[in-house]
Amino acid sequence: MTDPSRPGVAASGRRRAARRGPAIALIPAVAAVFGGSLAWAGQHDPLAAAEPSAVDEQVQPEPGAAAEQAVADLTARVRDARARVAALTATVAEQREAAHAKQAADAAQASAAQAAAAQAAAAKAAAQASAAQRRASAPAPPRVHVVTRASG
């Protein structure tokens, strides 16, 4: 910028500006050369391919693939749950069947016991009736002259 109040200063500024122009014009070229060098080095770094980059480890699937995976996982879980439900249902059915079988066996046993008791009672009654009949039809005891009993 020229200061109008100072004429000598205006002449040196014009010279300085004339020098800055070519310098500034060289900057893009230098930057381009430098960038090219970096690009070339990066392409030719022998370790660059061997070491995975941090960015590679955190690669996020694309939105469509993640959803498919989630659906697959959920489907697998549902399949597992169904399998467990089926297994539990089978177990419950087995236990119920066993309980029914036991009840049936107990009932049969009780029935058999009742039948046996009834049979025994009938046999006892028959025996008693037979004894009573025998006694009734048996000859009365002969007249006795005396009875022997506990003498103390």
């Binding site: 002969p142 006795v144 005396v146 009875v147 022997t148 506990a150």
Partner: peptide, 19 residues
């Protein structure tokens, strides 16, 4: 009282019958 002894014949003329 239940201790008994017998001899000869009973009033029936036979043996003594003991219950």
């Amino acid at each position: 009282g239940g201790d008994l002894a017998f001899s000869g014949s009973s009033p029936d003329g036979g043996a003594w019958r003991v219950g």
